Amino acid sequence: MRKLLNTLCLAAFVWGTAPAMAGENEVMLYKNPQCGCCEGHAEHLRQNGFKVTEQATHNLAQMSSEAGIPEEFQGCHLAFVDGYVVSGHVPASTVRKLLTERPDIKGVTLPGMPTGSPGMPGPKEGPLEVLEITKSGTVGGVYARE
Rank of each mutant, 00 (worst) to 15 (best):
K97A: 14
S136Y: 10
G112S: 07
A20W: 13
N48K: 09
P103L: 09
P127G: 14
T134L: 07
G83N: 07
C38E: 03
L78A: 01
H77I: 03
I105D: 02
A22N: 10
F50A: 03
E132D: 12
V90R: 02
E101C: 11
M120I: 05
K97D: 10
V90A: 08
Q55N: 11
L45N: 01
V27I: 11
Q55W: 06
C38G: 04
C9Q: 15
T100D: 15
L128I: 06
C35D: 09
L110R: 00
G68T: 03
G49I: 04
E54D: 06
G137Q: 11
H41W: 13
L110Y: 02
E39Q: 14
V85W: 02
G49P: 01
L99A: 10
G88Y: 03
E71P: 05
D104V: 12
G40P: 01
H44I: 00
K51V: 11
L128T: 02
A11M: 14
H58D: 13
S65A: 10
R102F: 11
S136K: 14
H89A: 10
D104I: 11
S64M: 00
P114I: 05
E26S: 14
D104Y: 12
T57R: 01
L110A: 03
L110C: 02
V90L: 10
R46P: 02
M120C: 07
N25L: 13
P91R: 05
K135D: 10
Y30A: 03
G16Q: 07
F73G: 02
Y143Q: 04
A61N: 06
G141E: 08
V86S: 04
G49H: 06
R46Y: 06
V14D: 09
A11P: 07
M113I: 08
T134Y: 05
E71T: 12
L98F: 08
G83T: 07
G83D: 09
L110S: 01
A11K: 10
N32V: 10
L45A: 01
R2N: 15
S136P: 05
G68Q: 03
P123N: 15
N6K: 15
V14F: 11
G137P: 07
G126I: 08
V27L: 04
P127F: 11
T17S: 13
K3E: 15
K51G: 06
L8P: 05
